[in-house]
């Protein structure tokens, strides 16, 4: 997979490039600000973009804005946004772009879990949705009343669905079988009156939409 990286801290930018290359991806360009990111995408037409939110020249949310602009211009481009903080506002803006397919929003901390990070990038590139567990935790804490009907295990599964994980990944995470996960998911969707969705990405969006409403 061809990737363009945008990150203003040199150390981190080089580290990210090394990490992705180690897992067999091609880093077409690694740039340090938002205008350069837009330019690099136009030039290299990568499969995916990994970008920091806060970059020069204004050090506010240039990276996110550039990502949204790129999504509008190239709807097939997968975008993984990294942020030092999770802000629901940013997550919401990303999820709204192109129906939430092929976008991800993760805390920078997650880069450290290299395998999971590269997995997440893969899922985003495949058209999936990845939302940081921290955002999901905040969303879950907000909708307390209807969620009270869920068992603790079902809550855990709901959180993992919202993060954009497939059944197999959830099963691995919880050390249970995929069939058990499927049963939990069916229960959750029934209890929350969500339309059943087989497509993984649609399922994530349904859960996120529910949590954010």
């Amino acid at each position: 997979m061809r990737v363009v990286i945008a990150e203003d801290a040199v150390l981190l930018r080089e580290g990210l490039a090394g990490l992705l290359e180690r897992f067999g991806h091609t880093v077409a360009a690694a740039v340090g600000d938002a205008p350069a990111l837009v330019e690099a995408v136009t030039e290299h037409r990568p499969h995916a973009v990994v970008t920091d939110v806060r970059m020069p020249p204004g050090y506010s949310d240039e990276g996110l804005r550039a990502a949204l602009e790129l999504r509008a211009r190239h709807p097939e481009l997968a975008v993984l946004v990294l942020s030092q903080y999770v802000e629901q506002t940013y997550a919401a803006e990303l999820l709204e772009s192109g129906g939430g397919a092929g976008v991800g929003y993760l805390l920078k901390d997650r880069i450290g879990d290299v395998r999971e990070f590269v997995d997440a990038l893969g899922r985003v590139a495949a058209g999936g949705t990845v939302v940081d567990p921290e955002v999901v935790r905040q969303l879950l804490s907000r909708r307390r009343d209807p969620l009270a009907r869920l068992t603790p295990r079902e809550l855990e599964v709901l959180g993992l669905i919202a993060e954009g994980r497939a059944n197999a990944s959830i099963a691995r995470h919880l050390h249970v079988t995929e069939a058990a996960v499927a049963k939990h998911i069916a229960n959750i969707f029934a209890k929350l009156d969500l339309p059943p969705a087989s497509d993984g990405h649609r399922r994530v969006l349904a859960v996120l939409a529910y949590l954010r409403s």
Binding site: L12, R22, D109, I111, G112
Partner: peptide
């Protein structure tokens, strides 16, 4: 710009080392 970026880099280096 300082401590946070360095900690992220450190965490990434440790993650790679673990591999």
């Amino acid at each position: 710009d300082g401590a946070q970026q360095r900690l992220v880099s450190l965490s990434m280096a440790l993650g790679m080392a673990g591999l």
